[in-house]
Design a protein around this nucleic acid. Structure first.
Lengths: 239, 239
DNA sequence: TACTCTTATAGTATATTTGACTACAAGTAT
DNA sequence: ATACTTGTAGTCAAATATACTATAAGAGTA
C-alpha cells in the first residue's frame, strides 16, 4: 500500500507521525464454496490506482506493528477483532518503485460470513478472490500471498486452524475438503474421519445437515478445550 | 544495535544512505560441550556501551534485508557465508529507547569451530554464551533470542538442521544429545538410532571415535542428497 | 590376565497407527 | 420400489512407535 506516499491521502498534520520506510500488508484468507479465497483491495489513488493488492499501509510512530496491522485492516476493509499473525518482513531493495520501503506481512483466517466488507480510507473496493485465480497484484504482493499460503499449509498440519475458516457448525466432509483444498491432495474419507474423531477435538451436535439431496451428515463443532490440551503436548495433523 | 544512531560510528557521508527506523539483529546458534550457545557482541559505544546484545545494525538504502543481515554479521563478528533465515519483525513502539525503530530478526546455525571470531565495527567484543545462562540483553534482544529458540525447536522436528551445529563427523550419541538439548527431553538410545538410520540420512564412515575411555562409537557424516529427497516428500523428525 | 566399568549396538515383543479397502446405512430423486 | 448419492462402520495387513533386554567392544585397574 505504499502508493499512499504519493497519494494526497494523508493529511499534512499526520505525516510527521508516520514511519516512512515501513509498511504493513495483510493476507486474509477465507473459505467459500470449497475454495480458498483471499481478501484484496483496489487502490483509489497513487501510482497503483485501480490495481488490486493486499490491504495494508503505513505505521504510526507510536503504534506497535501488530496494532498497526489491525488498524489498517479495519480502516480498509471494515474487519476487526481478528487474530493476525505475522509472516515476516519483505525487504528487497526494489520491491516498491518510488522509494525504499520494507513491508511486514501478516496473515489471518476468517469466516467470511461473519464480516461485512466496507471499503474505506484509500481503498476504492474490497472483495474476495479465489486464491487460485489471483494474479498481477501490485509490487511484491503476489510473493507475500504465496508466503502466506505456504505458512497456512505448514500450520494446518500442526494446528487445527482450519476451524477458523469454517462456519460454527460443519460436517466432517466439509472439514476434509478444506484440508484437501489447502494441502492440495485427496484424502480417504473413512480414514480422515477416524483420525480426527479420535483426537476428540470435535463435539458432535444433535443436529444434522439440511437441504441436501442425499443422506444428511452429522454436524460438529470445534472443541477449544481439547485443542488447548493438544497444543501443549504437541500433535500432528497430517493426513 | 540501534545505539549506532547516537554513537559516532557512522561517517556523515554514509548516514544519508541508511534507513533510520529499521535494523537487523541476528541470533547465531552454536553447539559446544553438549550445550546450545548463542553469539553475542559487546557494544563499544552509544547508550548500550559495555552491554551485550545480538549482533545487528542498520540497513543501507540500496541493500536487501537478507544482504544487510549477512553484511552486519560479517562486520561485527567476522562470520560469513552462513545461511541466515528470517525470524520476523519486532516492532513494539517502545522497544528502543531513543527513537522508533523496528528490527528484523534473523537466525542461523553454525559449527563453532569453523569460524574465527573477530570483533569489528561497533563491537568491542564477540563471544559465545550458553543460551541457558544468557540474561539482561539490551532492548528486546532477550525476546528475539527466545523466538529464535522457539523456531529452532520447531524446525528441528521437521528438518535435519541439527547437522549444521555439529562437526563434519559425529557419533549417533552426539546427535541424540543435540536433539535432547534443543527439545528439552530425554530419548531412548536404541530407538533413536534405529529411526535415524532407517532414514538413510547418515553416511557411516570407516572411522571411529578416538581418545575415549570406553568402546569407541562409529562416526557418521550427514548425507545431503537424501536430505534433499526427504525435504521434497516431507518427513517428521520427532523422537 | 581377568575382572569391572562404560558406552555402543543388536534384538525382541507389544501396542498403536497407517493406508487401502469393503460393506452397509440413510436419505433423495425417479 | 429402485437407483443413486453420500455418510458411517468395520476389516486387515503393513508399518511404526515404545519400552525394554541382551550382548559387544573397548579402556582401566587389580
Amino acid at each position: 500500500m505504499e502508493h499512499q506516499s504519493t497519494s494526497m491521502q494523508i493529511p499534512e498534520a499526520e505525516k510527521s507521525v508516520i514511519l516512512d520506510s515501513i509498511t504493513i500488508d495483510c493476507v486474509i484468507f477465507g473459505f467459500k464454496n470449497e475454495e480458498l479465497e483471499v481478501l484484496l483491495v483496489k487502490h483509489k489513488e497513487g501510482i497503483s490506482k485501480d490495481k488490486w493488492g493486499l490491504p495494508g499501509g503505513w505505521i504510526y510512530e507510536n503504534e506497535g506493528i501488530d496494532d498497526a496491522a489491525n488498524r489498517l485492516l479495519l480502516e480498509l476493509t471494515g474487519i476487526k477483532d481478528v487474530y493476525l499473525e505475522q509472516l515476516r518482513a519483505f525487504g528487497a531493495p526494489d520491491r516498491f518503485p518510488l522509494s525504499r520501503v520494507i513491508t511486514v506481512g501478516y496473515y489471518a483466517l476468517i469466516k467470511e460470513e461473519d464480516y461485512d466488507l466496507k471499503a474505506g480510507y484509500t481503498a476504492a473496493e474490497v472483495a474476495w478472490f479465489k486464491v487460485s485465480e489471483v494474479k498481477d497484484l501490485i509490487y511484491d504482493h503476489q510473493q507475500i500471498l504465496e508466503i502466506g499460503q505456504k505458512r497456512l499449509r505448514r500450520r494446518i498440519k500442526q494446528e487445527p486452524i482450519g476451524f477458523n475458516l469454517l462456519p460454527e457448525k460443519f460436517t466432517l466432509l466439509q472439514l476434509m475438503h478444506l484440508y484437501e483444498q489447502i494441502l492440495g491432495y485427496e484424502m480417504d474419507k473413512p480414514n480422515f474421519r477416524r483420525k480426527i474423531l479420535k483426537m476428540d477435538l470435535l463435539t458432535p451436535l444433535a443436529e444434522k445437515q439440511k437441504d441436501v439431496s442425499h443422506r444428511a451428515a452429522k454436524l460438529y463443532r470445534f472443541n477449544p478445550e481439547t485443542y488447548k490440551k493438544l497444543l501443549e503436548k504437541g500433535f500432528n495433523f497430517e493426513f
